[in-house]
Design a protein around this nucleic acid. Structure first.
Length: 477
DNA sequence: GGAACTCGCCAC
DNA sequence: AAACGTGGCGAGTTCC
């Protein structure tokens, strides 16, 4: 695909961005080598112990018995052959090449306890071999210098390598802690991270100008994920802090709203959502099963700890089976695109039609994408690329401010919609104010097509604390 | 013995 | 009609 800046603004953004990112690369991030070595040795002992135990199981002995050469428990091809060809189990699904899948989800559906041990071994090896090893290999005098590329991604996002700084574990608490505990600020400094919240959805709202979506972004009391959770789970009330509701909101956001926006459909969404309460898919909801929901009304009345189970909630509303749930999501999908976000949908139709006529799409940030794209790519690139350009514009402006002002704090990295700082403790509060000003005020002023508010979330780790120790940071504006 | 491939998995 | 977008990277495997 041939992609290029169409305007001078676009050219300058990448030119300045390359320089600003190069400065961040030069700064680098401090690695605690002592920690890495000890943790690696610890993980290795743990992995060896788990492998010994695994090799004593009847499952493994059967596996080894069926083949001539020694089994490599890291080989998914060997595992796939054993499970699906020798044991003749039915794979949950297959890979693109037709082989029975052995990924986490597929193995879990087989309900074989020994496979959970294998998954645990996989997880520890991933942490050791992909992350800790990379830090130790790439560090120079105790600092890693990840590269940030602006020329490799078709949608105009960035990428990072040697080591990739944009995929360090975050969601899994254990992996997160092991990996991010290796990364430190310079002595006496603090790590600070500033994220644009929900920037891709906000930018999509600017692009398609759907009234409902724009209003959701403008009204701070509204919450589209909450509204969709209420609709999907037929909740009578939604209590922001109540146990269970937060989980349902998160599940709705990641299992329905985002996939629908990106072009997925109700059947996959139903599978996504079923994973949340687990084990229920494709069978009758069992009463008393599923995640507990705190009763919002009793919370309101000052009574805590009254719970209803999610399955009871769904059964009481007449959704008793996975098939019924799937049909329910089909109706909701219709409503989603026909009634809730009709202008988003018509934008997609129009946008793709125009691309088919002229062969390219222009982003609001002044870039053009041309070449062969399918409908989803055509509709998704503008949000993805332009959202990153907002981050890059801010990154450049912050970099310039810190350099010209002779600050001791510095930018050290970027993860698509966030910036990472190595900050001097005396400058933290002033830094927060400057970054707030640039990201949420200066940026929308520079790009008048930004018609919804921008918001950032800040996190700060203590002095000399690692990247695993980030805590929410609020300051008085 | 290295290039190119598949698969799985981490991030946004 | 079909059914989620963008990357990097490690291990295993196959091909030449």
């Amino acid at each position: 695909m041939n992609i290029h800046p169409k305007t001078k603004y676009a050219y300058d953004l990448l030119h300045e961005g390359t320089l600003a990112l190069a400065r961040a690369e030069q700064q680098g991030l401090r690695i605690n080598m002592d920690y890495c070595e000890k943790k690696k040795a610890h993980l290795t002992r743990k992995i060896e112990r788990m492998e010994r135990l695994f090799k004593e199981t009847n499952f493994f002995k059967h596996w080894q018995h069926t083949v001539k050469s020694p089994v490599n428990i890291n080989s998914n091809l060997q595992l796939s052959n054993f499970l699906y060809k020798i044991k003749k189990l039915e794979p949950a699904y297959s890979t693109t090449s037709g082989q029975g899948s052995t990924d986490e989800d597929a193995l879990k559906q087989l309900n074989i306890p020994e496979l959970n041990d294998l998954l645990e071994i996989r997880k520890l090896k991933k942490v050791r071999d992909t992350y800790l090893d990379a830090f130790m290999r790439e560090q120079v005098d105790g600092y890693i210098h990840p590269s940030f590329n602006l020329h490799l991604v078709v949608s105009y996002r960035s990428s990072s390598d040697r080591p990739n700084f944009q995929n360090n574990p975050k969601r899994d608490e254990e992996s997160m802690r092991i990996v991010r505990s290796a990364i430190y600020p310079r002595p006496g400094h603090q790590l600070m991270e500033v994220d644009y919240s929900g920037i891709e959805v906000r930018i999509n709202a600017c692009i398609n100008q759907d009234k409902t979506l724009v209003n959701y972004m403008r009204d701070p009391t509204s919450d589209m994920h909450r509204d969709m959770a209420i609709q999907i789970f037929k909740l009578d009330h939604f209590a922001k802090g109540a146990t269970g509701h937060k989980v349902l909101r998160q599940a709705t956001k990641n299992g329905f709203v985002f996939p629908e926006f990106y072009g997925d459909y109700y059947k996959n969404c139903a599978e996504n959502m079923a994973c949340v309460w687990g084990g229920l898919s494709k069978e009758r909801w069992k009463p008393g099963q599923g995640i507990p929901l705190e009763d919002p009304m009793s919370v309101k009345n000052g009574l805590e700890g009254i719970y209803i189970n999610l399955s009871d909630q769904l059964i009481s509303k007449g959704i008793k089976t996975f098939d019924q749930f799937t049909n329910h999501l089909k109706d909701i999908e219709q409503d989603f695109w026909n009634n809730r976000f009709p202008e988003y949908r018509s934008w997609k139709d129009r946008w793709y039609w125009d691309y088919q006529k002229c062969g390219y799409i222009d982003l609001l940030s002044g870039f053009r994408c041309q070449g062969q794209m399918d409908r989803k790519q055509v509709c998704n690139y503008p949000g993805q690329g332009t959202a990153f350009h907002c981050l890059l514009w801010s990154f450049n402006r912050v970099d310039k401010t810190l350099r010209e002002g002779g600050w001791d704090s510095r930018l050290v990295g970027q993860i698509h919609d966030s910036m990472l700082f190595d900050a001097h403790p005396d400058e933290v509060e002033r830094l927060a104010k400057v970054v707030q000003q640039i990201t949420c005020h200066d940026l929308p002023q520079f790009w008048p097509w930004i018609i919804v508010p921008m918001e950032v979330e800040m996190e700060l780790a203590g002095i000399d604390k690692s990247w695993a120790e980030l805590k929410p940071y609020v300051f008085s504006k």
